[in-house]
């Protein structure tokens, strides 16, 4: 969801060709939102922008980033937007029946920002963006989607182009604030926000995951369940089996009978019964019952 910060379109932006930079923050960490940010200005302002000391947000200290963000917010020659993708949306998309990978989520977020800025009436001429995946393929994808715009897709774009550095500050500060002000959906006791960087090598992150794991629920929704970092923590957790996971494995087998097995092994009836028993349970029964997954239970266990 994009922030409504720059909801009123700046006048120069609809009259002069503009440059825009797009960058992301929080793509790798196991927790918190992934934020895409963009910053744009008139082409004629680019030289001035270069003097404003926006550098790649990773090379700046948190206070410096905060300060720069506040200064660009009040700068009427600069426009910006963000797209905050919640960890639960990231997990949900990556764990859907038809899974969406992180590159695709990233591409969609960046394209969403371009769309949004265009819809505001901004005259976008050039867009600079840090690459996700292969730069040339990404450039073609963007150009096909927005034919009127020149896209420059580069590795480390945030240290090469001032508009991308600015976008990187917008994204990073927004993510840091989102984490600082995080309100847990969960009401479990003793939750805290000493999360560390969110990278698996960080002892604080490991400790946080250890402190917040739950045998049934896994983790609070701050965590991206689809990350490999989570896997070791699920080892002692209660096993949870999903129909969608099974369908994947069975895709090459003759699907239907197997799929029914999985369906009927869900829910009330428990999981201890033998496969053959479940498989045969539909046989010889009226269609009315088959269609409703209803069976006569002769034995409670």
């Amino acid at each position: 969801m994009a922030d409504a910060a720059a909801a009123t379109t700046l006048e120069w932006a609809t009259k002069e060709p503009c440059l825009m930079g797009i960058d992301e923050a929080g793509r790798g960490p196991v927790l918190g939102p992934m934020v895409y940010g963009c910053m744009y200005c008139a082409r004629s302002y680019n030289d001035t922008l270069a003097t404003l000391k926006f550098a790649d947000s990773k090379t700046l200290k948190e206070e410096q980033r905060e300060e720069l963000f506040e200064s660009l917010k009040v700068n009427s020659s600069i426009g910006w937007e963000v797209d905050v993708i919640c960890p639960k949306d990231l997990s949900a998309k990556m764990l859907k029946r038809s899974k969406v990978n992180l590159n695709e989520i990233s591409h969609n977020s960046a394209m969403g920002l371009v769309r949004k800025v265009l819809d505001m009436g901004v005259l976008l001429a050039e867009v600079y963006i840090d690459t996700v995946g292969d730069p040339e393929k990404y450039r073609i994808k963007l150009t096909e989607k927005f034919p009127g715009i020149k896209f420059v897709v580069a590795k480390k774009a945030d240290s090469l182009y001032p508009v991308v550095s600015g976008a990187s500050i917008v994204a990073k500060v927004t993510r840091d604030r989102a984490l600082r002000n995080w309100v847990f959906d969960e009401t479990a006791l003793n939750m805290h926000m000493k999360t560390g960087s969110g990278y698996p090598g960080d002892p604080d992150t490991k400790q946080w995951l250890e402190d917040h794991k739950h045998p049934v629920f896994g983790f609070p929704t701050l965590v991206r369940f689809s990350w490999g970092t989570c896997t070791p923590f699920f080892k002692d957790a209660v096993e949870v089996t999903w129909e969608s996971d099974d369908v994947d494995e069975d895709a090459t087998n003759n699907g239907r009978a197997k799929r029914q097995v999985k369906l009927s092994s869900l829910g009330f009836t428990g999981f201890k019964r033998k496969t053959e028993e479940i498989e045969s349970s539909g046989k010889g029964r009226c269609k009315f019952f088959q269609a409703r997954n209803l069976e006569l239970v002769r034995k409670f266990q």
Partner: peptide
């Protein structure tokens, strides 16, 4: 609640704390 998955445990769980 009836969930679309098998949860291989019998017993209590703090549902209202985690499932919102």
């Amino acid at each position: 609640h009836l969930l679309p998955c098998g949860i291989r445990q019998n017993g209590g769980a703090p549902v209202s704390d985690y499932f919102k």
